[in-house]
Computed example of a mutant assay.
Amino acid sequence: MHERLHEFDSGILVGQPGAVLAKSDRHRPSETWYNEVAPPPRLAGWIASMWETRIPELGEARVRIMPNACVDLVFYVSDPSWGEGPAAIVAPPHRSYVVGSTLRSFMVRSIGWRHVVGASLLPAGVAPLLGLPARVIGESVAFLRDVIGKRAAELEQQVIDGPPDRAMQRLAAALQETRVLRQADGIVEQAVRLVRRAHGRKRIDDLAAGVNVSPRRLERHFTEQVGISAKTFSRLVRFDRVVRDIATRGNGSWAQFALAHGYTDQAHFINEFKEFAGITPAQFEREALTTGTDN
């Protein structure tokens, strides 16, 4: 996954691993390709990123989906894949889903060409855009229609109809036009911004002070709105940063990598990584090089 978010509609798509494609390039990539861009400025407080992935037509591919501290809207521009485990609901002919803020990775299996676009909603953006708090969605993977009702068919049509290479832009435009369904929780919105700015490395006492509330009140807002504690959310944000940085870590030791990301030692890092990913960092690094991984 590419580390830096590009400005929305910047003119190029930078994918993994190492491919650079012009937006007008409609050729299918020869390897799994992922790109993410910053959301439109008006949605920056509610959406972490807009993203797109393409899987080549080279037989069966299994892609690991990692926790990213977000609720994702997922649209298959191509035929759908087949989910496994908690994502078993993902299967043809359904093409639009909501993926809750999972605490453990899961696998998606594809056979043949796949093209998927989506939006990673921040906790404070779920209620305004979907009409219910992230807590209600939890870790589930659901049909979009079961979350937002009849609006799902209209949104799916807006995203899927038209040139495939503009699907992500159509999703962004549709979300900008969405009527605000519920007010965002201001405390959660501020806290999420601070946690993300610190890459998950902020003490809860300091975080509460940063939004001018007590730690107890902060945790109550997270539990009611997000469904997890502020501490767990911070751990997920740090984990997301780790997943992004592994691809560019070079030849340094895992111990050095762990310390650089705020873990007390290598054992702490490996244990937490296995908790969220289900595999060790070294296994993930090898897997990502051979199969492609999204988060």
Rank of each mutant, 00 (worst) to 15 (best):
R54M: 12
R26V: 14
H27L: 12
R54P: 01
Y76E: 08
A48V: 06
L43F: 02
N35H: 14
G59Y: 09
E31R: 11
D79G: 13
W51S: 00
A38W: 05
C70N: 14
W51T: 04
L58H: 10
M50G: 04
R26T: 11
R42T: 04
G45W: 00
Y76D: 10
I47H: 04
T53A: 13
R64W: 14
Y76I: 02
M50D: 02
A44C: 06
I55G: 07
E60R: 15
S78C: 01
M50L: 09
P41E: 03
N35V: 15
L73A: 07
E57I: 00
L58F: 01
S78G: 04
S49Y: 13
R28I: 15
R26F: 08
T53E: 14
E31V: 13
W33R: 04
Y76W: 10
M50K: 01
E52F: 09
P39A: 01
M66P: 02
N68Y: 09
E52D: 10
T53W: 15
I47P: 00
H27I: 10
V77P: 06
T32V: 15
R62D: 11
R28H: 13
P56A: 07
I65N: 12
W33L: 11
A61T: 13
P56W: 01
R64E: 08
G59L: 06
H27N: 10
A44Q: 04
D72K: 05
R42E: 08
E36R: 14
V77L: 04
M50S: 00
E36F: 15
W46K: 06
P56T: 07
L73T: 00
S30C: 10
A61E: 15
L73R: 01
W46L: 15
R28F: 13
W51G: 03
L58A: 10
E52V: 08
P29Y: 12
I47C: 05
E52T: 07
L58K: 11
M50T: 01
F75P: 01
R26L: 09
Y34S: 12
R26E: 11
G45Q: 01
V71L: 00
L43Q: 00
T53K: 15
V77S: 04
E60Y: 12
M50C: 02
E60S: 15
D79V: 13
E31N: 08
W51M: 02
Y34L: 13
V74P: 00
R64Q: 12
V77N: 03
S49C: 11
W33H: 10
V77E: 07
S30G: 15
R26P: 05
C70M: 12
P40T: 02
W33K: 06
N35Q: 11
A38L: 11
